[in-house]
Nucleic acid binder design. Sequence first.
DNA 1: CAAATAGTGTCTCTAAGACACTATTCC
DNA 2: GGAATAGTGTCTTAGAGACACTATTTG
Lengths: 207, 207
Amino acid sequence: MIESTPVSVDVLVLRFDPGARTVLLGVAPRAAEPFRGELALPGVLLGLGERLREAGTRAVVGKLGLPSAALTGIGQLRTFDEPSRDPRGPTLSIALWATANSAGEGVRWCTLDEVPPLAFDHNRIVADCAPLLADLLWRHVEFTAGLMGNGFTTAQALDATEALTGDRPYPANLGRTMERVPGLRRTAEHAAALPKGGRPPSLWRWD
Amino acid sequence: MIESTPVSVDVLVLRFDPGARTVLLGVAPRAAEPFRGELALPGVLLGLGERLREAGTRAVVGKLGLPSAALTGIGQLRTFDEPSRDPRGPTLSIALWATANSAGEGVRWCTLDEVPPLAFDHNRIVADCAPLLADLLWRHVEFTAGLMGNGFTTAQALDATEALTGDRPYPANLGRTMERVPGLRRTAEHAAALPKGGRPPSLWRWD
DNA sequence: CAAATAGTGTCTCTAAGACACTATTCC
DNA sequence: GGAATAGTGTCTTAGAGACACTATTTG
């Protein structure tokens, strides 16, 4: 019988930062060889009998240092199978997305436009998965709810959409798109007053 | 270090049968335990350093007996990670699609509507992947070209669409959809005369 | 009131759906 | 000509895009 390929799980952790008005990707320096000290996506080897989402959570908690309660959603993206992607030998990488609602400590958060050089083929993984992430927003409920949280404004939704797709939609159009997302509705509530004046925005919430 | 989960590659091999006017899925009885003699998707364990499409080809050639030249396309679907899916122990299954242009021998071809009971969790894999396959038709060029081949009629396109989506579109509408597929065009050529009379259909070809 | 931000109404454009109508063949 | 199949023209509908206009706040 043929020896089997080890499987690693690498996670694209996304967080919406209302202050920065953008979506951020979490990376951290590697603690071990190879690529010790270089930035990388959080990743672990999949244990025997371990579920992908368990391994993904383990990677985010262990490598990024986020508390597991900060993870609001997780799911599959695709598999990368180039045999030379890891200098230690052929390894499969299953890329997952995860959404987080806090910044943690020691995490380097970067925009998807300006990802620093990463270890392994992680820049390629991010580049290949970026369009898949853009497709999830406002279509995949768990992803969208995990990223935006409960109680966000249309302006924040515009910011997140621009960060993931590269294009800023018109508010009226995005509002109609959001009204079609199951479980999402515009409430009569209004967000806190704005610093520079202006009409207070209403809040979107999940049922 | 934690022991790693073995990875199998299971392939949903699709073939368009103009005679049966439908899309067929290839399954074959298993030659070895567990589930010896029961029908299953063709699958193999991924070898060390092996690419997914190599392993997929090996599965189709070895388990279904198709010549490798009969495979016209191959690609990823998704990963199944339930630890109890294989009685021998936890195994990851990466599901692939493949398209074939010949029937081979000893292959049991079934429609996606009437898949017989299969070994492992293969019925679940087929059920979960069926909508993904429907999304590939007329959108993913390699899949569509692999499935339909070169030189097919609108009626055959209607049959394939109905088999994958469960819905038969109107010919005029499907024609417009097909004209938007990059590389596909309606030619001035006409197919051979029909058995029961009728206007000879024109042929669609890839550039 | 001016600046700043939020939200609405409506025209347009594209793709899909529905369906009546015309075209070409065999018998 | 009649049965059978192929293909076209066009109305309708849903969703995205564009953009002018109105609304509500701070200072």
